[in-house]
Computed example of a mutant assay.
Amino acid sequence: MEQDPLSQLRDIHIPPPEGFWPPAPGWWFVLLLVIGLAIAITVWLRRRRQKNAWYRIARRRLDRLAEGAAGTSRWFNELNSLLKQSALARYPDRQPQSLSGSGWVDFLLETSPADPAASRPVVSAMVASCYQPSPTCPTDDAIRFARVWIGGQKC
């Protein structure tokens, strides 16, 4: 009994589809790239936050000083101290802690942003008020200048 050899053939079978795992090498590269970028961005944000920590502290202290604006020489000394600490954090190479009088006024004006609050008479009166028994500088002007100066120093 002779059989037809073609009848013994089976239909073509398509192999089952591939699963999603393991991914192709290109996807591994993309995954490593995304992880690397996430780490780099995290490190950059953390360093920036640490670098600007003085800014957040100065803003909080300035807000407290503004709330209790007394207009005394002691209050102006505290404001001047805050500005010096901020200047030291922002410009450590220029040694602002050693400046006083007109040198300190010049430094503040030189490093302040262009703003009407940063005028020589206001800054001079603010610095001089630290040494006067009854200060002549209005506290509002001093606070306005300090906000402008500290706000313009953020990195």
Rank of each mutant, 00 (worst) to 15 (best):
L88V: 14
S86F: 02
L82V: 04
A87F: 00
L99P: 00
Q97E: 09
D93M: 10
R90Q: 07
Y91M: 08
F107K: 02
S73Q: 14
E110W: 08
I57G: 07
S73T: 13
T72E: 02
T72K: 01
A70C: 05
S102V: 12
L82G: 03
T111G: 02
R59M: 15
L109Q: 00
F107Y: 06
S102H: 08
E67P: 03
A70G: 07
L82R: 00
E67R: 15
R47K: 15
R49S: 12
N52Q: 08
I57Y: 10
N80R: 07
L83S: 03
W54K: 05
A114L: 09
S73A: 13
N77G: 11
A87Y: 01
P113S: 05
G71T: 01
R61L: 12
S100E: 10
S81T: 14
A58E: 05
S98Y: 11
P113E: 04
N77W: 14
D115H: 15
S102C: 02
V105T: 14
S86Q: 02
Q95M: 10
N52W: 03
F107E: 01
Q50T: 08
S100H: 10
Q97V: 11
L79R: 02
R61H: 13
R64T: 15
S100N: 11
S100M: 09
L79K: 03
L108Y: 00
L109E: 00
R90G: 03
K51M: 10
G101E: 06
Y91T: 06
E110M: 09
R60E: 15
A53F: 07
S102M: 11
D93V: 08
S73E: 14
N77F: 13
A66P: 01
A87L: 06
S100C: 06
L88H: 11
Q85V: 07
R94L: 15
R90S: 04
Q50S: 09
T111C: 04
A70E: 15
D115W: 06
P113N: 02
